[in-house]
Simulated assay, not measured.
Amino acid sequence: MSDLLHLQTAACGRPSPATIDAVRQHLELEAAEGGYVAEEQAAPRLRRLKAGVGRLLGHDADAVCFTTSATDGLEQLLRRWPLPEDADVLVAAGEWGPNRDRFLAHGLRVRTAAVDAHGRLDLAELQRELRIDPPALVHLVSLASHRALAQPVAEALRLCGEAGVPLWVDAAQALAHLPTGFGADAVYAPARKWLAAPRGVGFLAVAAPWRDRFSGLDDEECSVASRVGAAQALAELPTDHVDRLAAVGRRLREAVADVEGWEVADPPGATGALVGLRPTADQDVEAVQRRLHQEHRVLTTACLTWRAPDDMAEPLLRLAPAELAEADVERLTGSLRLRKPSLG
């Protein structure tokens, strides 16, 4: 393993040696036996992968389709779901910016739901809106990508179900990180983030009333080796992964809370290991991100406002470790401290 302090799991997790070996071994099997023979031999492993992902998302294995990414999952929903023309989609202020763009590209009208002072969905207002002027669907980002803003998916699903309005969930940052087993009408995520699987693998789970419209997705051309890697990554996922990552996040927030020039941008009571930092001394977040990587080998993410234009007033620095030792804490806080001007 390199000397890199990897705090970018929210972009791409770090595959384990066993996951890398699983990909390599499948590619070797393709070379030795042929690609389609190797795919047939991998089929039981991939069925277990779908069943395991289904359990994480609150669905059975038959609900789960493979995709190539979260973006692909949303695109498949927009192409195949029976939405009326010029339909309204209701989102929260922390909605992922490119999702909004995709809704508009498909001719949908985007409405923004009321949120509280911290950016969380106002459930009373949602209930009122569903009763008075129901949209064609509600779309929630389970956990924002720029700070630990988690939406009340379970409660929203109950209200949407009572109103007969489908709920779609973007679980890109939540899968293998936060609780996700709510059984939303549709939920999608990539495997490359907190599951730490190879890039190019994603999942889409669709509830029974609409499931038949998504048949055939698994048959599209793909990297079977990457899916095998995802199966290995899921097999390694600890049963207490939510608690472990919550503990990592608590320690990280404690450590950075007193670092001069930064403040934690997460809402009160935030959980999980994704942490957003707001600069308080006019730092250029992109320049800081480059300096941390180039001078300290600390890999972070500069989150610009396009990620959530209705929730972000300025860029944030995102920290997203899958694990964190005390030496890592000292290294991070030391590299974040403001530089003092030299004298003389």
Rank of each mutant, 00 (worst) to 15 (best):
L343D: 06
A320I: 10
E260C: 05
S215Y: 15
A257Q: 11
D240W: 07
L126C: 10
S342K: 08
Y188E: 01
A117C: 06
W210D: 12
G334Q: 10
T9Y: 12
R80P: 02
K50G: 07
E330Q: 15
K193D: 02
L137A: 15
D72A: 06
A156Q: 03
R55M: 10
A205M: 06
V201L: 10
C160T: 04
P152W: 03
R253V: 03
T112V: 15
A42R: 00
P238W: 15
A51V: 11
E221H: 00
L29K: 08
G183A: 03
A87N: 05
W81P: 01
L108G: 07
G200M: 07
G73S: 06
G272N: 05
G107D: 09
T67D: 02
L277A: 04
H241I: 09
D266Q: 09
L332G: 12
L4E: 01
L332E: 15
L304Q: 11
C12I: 13
K193P: 04
D60T: 11
E40F: 01
A186F: 13
D72F: 03
W194R: 00
A205V: 03
L56T: 00
L234M: 12
A63R: 08
P17G: 08
R55N: 08
R253T: 04
W96Y: 15
E314K: 08
P152E: 08
V91C: 05
V165D: 06
W168N: 00
G13F: 10
D282A: 15
C303S: 10
R109L: 07
T112M: 11
L217H: 04
R80D: 02
G107S: 15
Y188W: 07
E85Q: 04
E286A: 14
G35H: 01
V110H: 09
Q127M: 00
L343P: 00
E33T: 07
W262L: 13
R307I: 15
L108P: 04
E254W: 02
R131C: 14
G54P: 01
W81K: 02
V329C: 07
A136M: 06
L4R: 03
E125T: 11
Y36R: 06
G216L: 15
V169W: 06
G97I: 09
A273W: 04
P279K: 04
L143I: 07
R128K: 14
L29H: 14
T19N: 08
S215W: 12
A281T: 06
W210H: 15
R14H: 04
A322K: 01
A63W: 06
L149T: 06
D240E: 14
V256Y: 09
G200W: 09
Q25V: 02
A176I: 07
D133H: 14
T239F: 05
L123I: 01
L175I: 03
V141W: 00
H26T: 02
E330H: 13
H118N: 11
A42W: 02
L195E: 10
A302E: 00
H241P: 13
P238E: 10
P135Y: 07
W262K: 13
D170S: 06
A197Y: 09
E236W: 09
A31G: 08
D219E: 13
L317Y: 11
T271G: 07
R290P: 06
E254I: 03
A265I: 05
P17C: 05
D101N: 12
A113N: 09
Q289E: 15
L167C: 05
L204N: 08
L195M: 13
D86S: 11
L108S: 03
R211A: 13
D258H: 05
E314Y: 00
A113K: 02
V298W: 01
G183D: 02
